[in-house]
Design a protein around this nucleic acid. Structure first.
Length: 783
DNA sequence: CAGTGAGCGAGCTTCCGCTTGACTT
């Protein structure tokens, strides 16, 4: 029996620490929080100074039971949860549940899981910090109040209202995406002409090479650009001035959760949830440090390891010790940065994990390497026929430094349009240059790009909204609620003009480029836009981008003992709750209706709006004597941007294709895509079939094929009892109405010989003793 | 599985932040 019980949050961490502390210590994990607010009635007694009602969730009963037993058998308990607000609260809940005295139970903390750090922690225990615990309770209660008072407002006020939600984090995340979309929709593209000239000069080896120089400034119109080119006809070009400047590039800090998610997205194309899943595996197998962190700090032992690896692989010249500081003010830094546990392992076996691991390894190594040294050359070139000048710039890498290993990628948001600068040939002042050709190319301004999952995480982190453990789940939530969709967008072709000056002749051509194509970007849905507008209108305080940052300051004051947590909540709650009540009473139900025009055939109004089942267009009004016609919007369309013509096009469905076997065949687009309907049965259209143009001859074979497939699936049918014996992917089963019953193994071979009595017996048996089903609860059908 | 398109109001949904687990109709 161990004398000492140490409780941490993660089981993988427990294992490592147990090894370090030796046999006098037993280390167990709480698996995160062990208590939470009760869900019924908010779990808060608001009248009673916001007294929280905590319960132990079902999935934590087992852990708690085990910990209780272990506490009884131990002489001393050490609470070693993370050193932040949440960690402190977990320790407090452990005290409450395990019957430990907060005034005497030993509380220890460490930021890194190394022998010296943990031994030092054990030598210097402290007691629970109730101020920090209270700051966490205030955070928890405020989030519950916001989420559980705001969500029901949406259920009442949105015309589409199945399981809608709002919260301090998710609603602001959606707002970012909605506002970016509107910015893009309202963006007015301006074109201008960019001048580039190619010159010839001899390089060091005496070979003639071409290099590029940029024109003075951009020209607003083709006429201005042409005027400039014509001024250059017959001109002589001479080097006016050459400057050489040294420059340097420094490596990026080691990974935090958010920077890891960003780089894995840019470099490997991983979604944030995929990155976290793989990182979790690496962590559990002991290959990397903890993956949910906001710290850029490296432990001393890690720094030594990294130094050794750099010296061994590249030598002293490439080593530079660096301490990184967190730019983020509200970082809680309970852990280290994400780094490999053993720097001597440069790679791992598994192919999927390998790419992420190597990314982490390289980033960690590079963070302690020397700067890259550059030499930047800028040459100004005189034009004899006018007062303008051209600028050629080149960059030479003098020393690669950290670039030997790793270079951080950029988002397209920060990317400059200019292509990479190459090497310039040696140029002397007053040197005459031969101009090969000059061109003025029409370029267009671009709106800010839509968010990717990773760039949204970056933005949220900048705003101090959300935590490393919630970035991935938040992104999943806003998609699951139907506020946001991740998808690709096809680009559109666009003409652009080029003016050439070559051999003193000016020529004009028009070329074409693809613009606006995007991959795996976040688009707001109509629902997301309407919910955002609604919340902004009635709850601007919570929707403000600075709201979280401001209440974080108050939580800090509570943590510092300068403010009482119930007072802080009271100050927030009074106006907030008043607002909720007032909104419930006064706000109109949101429909998002927009008038598009008038139907030429009937003279009735054509409108787009949100219906019970999503965005739609309609001809006529519900109050009219004749029922209005309805059509669903396509996935890529939105109430805000759909045009009259696009709306009218939607009414071409359902289309009647004619008779097949004496019954009508029609096509339409449903919840699961385009389908054909015949004799009350449904048939999905093949991908290449366009419901707007498909013909009966193409659809008829689908009907025949599906019937055949069904025949093959059917083993036997008892018509009178309405029991079907079918062949499924997991073997034969019985089907009665919507319910399925698996046949016992010994009947699999002889399913065709089964009798009605046997089938009934099996069903009765399975009804009496249903097999354990742990599958996630299925969503209830509407209606 | 898919067709609908209000709202009488049955009965339900919902937050953020810690952590990992276990399942095939």
């Amino acid at each position: 029996m161990a004398k000492n019980l140490v409780i941490v949050e993660s089981p993988a961490k427990a294992k490592t620490i147990e090894k370090i502390l030796g046999k006098d210590f037993e280390v167990k994990s709480s698996f995160g929080h062990i208590r939470d607010l009760e869900k019924d009635d908010m779990g808060i007694d608001i009248q009673n100074n916001f007294k929280p009602k905590y319960i132990i969730p079902d999935d934590k009963e087992k852990v708690v039971k085990e910990l209780k037993k272990l506490v009884k058998d131990s002489d001393e308990v050490w609470l070693a949860t993370d050193e932040d607000r949440e960690g402190e609260a977990i320790s407090w809940h452990l005290c409450e549940v395990l019957g430990l005295d907060p005034a005497s139970t030993k509380r220890i903390v460490f930021h890194e899981i190394t022998k010296p750090a943990i031994e030092k922690a054990v030598r210097t225990p402290r007691l629970l910090d109730m101020n920090l615990v209270n700051a966490q309770q205030a955070r928890r209660i405020l989030d519950r109040i916001v989420g559980f008072e705001l969500s029901p407002v949406l259920w009442r006020k949105m015309s589409m209202r199945n399981s809608l939600s709002a919260g301090r984090v998710q609603s602001v995340a959606v707002r970012l995406i909605v506002e970016r979309e509107r910015e893009i929709n309202q963006f007015e593209t301006v074109s201008s002409f960019k001048v580039e000239a190619w010159f010839l000069a001899k390089d060091i080896q005496g070979r003639t090479i071409a290099f590029k120089a940029d024109g003075p400034s951009r020209f607003k119109t083709a006429e201005d650009a042409e005027k400039f080119l014509s001024q250059c006809v017959g001109a002589a070009y001479t080097v006016k001035d050459v400057t050489v400047k040294p420059g340097k590039k420094s490596p990026a800090a080691p990974f935090t959760t958010s920077t890891l998610q960003q780089e894995a997205s840019r470099k490997l194309g991983y979604s944030v949830s995929k990155t976290m899943l793989l990182a979790q595996k690496l962590y559990e197998s002991g290959q990397i440090t903890y993956m949910r962190t906001d710290s850029v700090n490296l432990s001393d032992t890690a720094m030594e390891d990294i130094s050794k690896a750099i010296h061994k692989n590249w030598g002293e010249r490439y080593y530079q010790s660096r301490k990184y500081k967190n730019k983020n003010e509200n970082a809680q830094e309970a852990h280290e940065a994400i780094r490999p546990t053993y720097m001597e392992n440069a790679s791992v076996d598994d192919s999927d994990l390998k790419r992420l691991y190597e990314l982490i390894w390289k980033r960690t190594i590079a963070s302690q390497m020397s700067d890259a040294e550059l030499e930047k050359t800028i040459a100004k070139i005189d034009i004899s026929t006018n007062h303008e000048e051209l600028t050629a710039s080149g960059e030479v890498l003098k020393f690669d430094g950290f670039l030997k290993v790793y270079m951080e990628s950029r988002d397209d948001e920060d990317a400059e349009e200019d292509d990479q600068e190459g090497v310039l040939p040696p140029l002397a002042v007053k040197q005459a240059l031969e101009m090969k050709e000059m061109k003025a190319t029409e370029r267009f301004t671009r709106p800010a790009p839509r968010y990717t999952e990773a760039s949204l995480v970056k933005k949220l982190e900048e705003l101090g909204i959300g935590r490393p453990s919630t970035y991935a789940p938040t992104i999943t939530t806003i998609q699951k609620r139907g506020y946001v969709e991740k998808r690709d967008k096809e680009g559109v072709k666009r003409d652009f003009r080029i003016l050439w000056l070559k051999n003193d002749q000016i020529s004009k051509v028009t070329d074409q480029e693809n613009t606006g194509a995007e991959k795996a970007k976040l688009f707001p849905t109509d629902l997301g836009m309407l919910v955002t507008d609604f919340l902004k209108q009635y709850f601007d305080r919570v929707m403000d981008y600075g709201f979280t940052a401001r209440i974080e300051e108050e939580f800090d004051e509570i943590a510092g003992g300068k403010k009482k947590w119930n007072n802080m909540l009271q100050d927030f709650y009074a106006p907030f709750h008043h607002n909720v009540e007032e909104t419930l009473e006064k706000a109109e139900r949101v429909k998002g209706e927009r008038l598009l025009g008038e139907d030429p055939a009937s003279g009735k109004p054509v409108t787009a709006r949100m219906g019970r089942f999503g965005p739609m267009v309609q001809i006529g009004k519900v109050e009219d004597e004749e029922k209005p016609r309805f059509a669903k919007l396509k996935q890529t369309q939105s109430i805000e941007t759909i045009t009259f013509d696009e709306a009218m096009d939607l009414f071409r469905l359902p289309r009647n294709l004619g008779l097949f076997e004496g019954t009508e065949v029609s096509v339409n687009i449903g919840r699961f895509g385009p389908y054909a309907q015949h004799d009350k049965k449904f048939y999905s259209l093949k991908k290449e079939m366009d419901p707007y143009t498909v013909e009966l001859e193409e659809v008829a074979p689908l009907i025949v094929e599906k019937r055949q497939a069904k025949d093959e699936r059917t083993i036997k049918v008892f018509e009178k009892e309405k029991i079907q014996v079918l062949r499924g992917p997991y073997g034969p089963y019985l089907k009665v109405g919507l319910r399925n019953y698996k046949l016992p193994k010994e009947k699999h071979e002889t399913a065709a010989d089964i009798t009605v009595e046997e089938a009934k017996a099996i069903i009765e048996e399975l009804k009496a003793n249903p097999p354990k089903k742990k599958a996630p609860p299925r969503k209830k059908k509407a209606d």
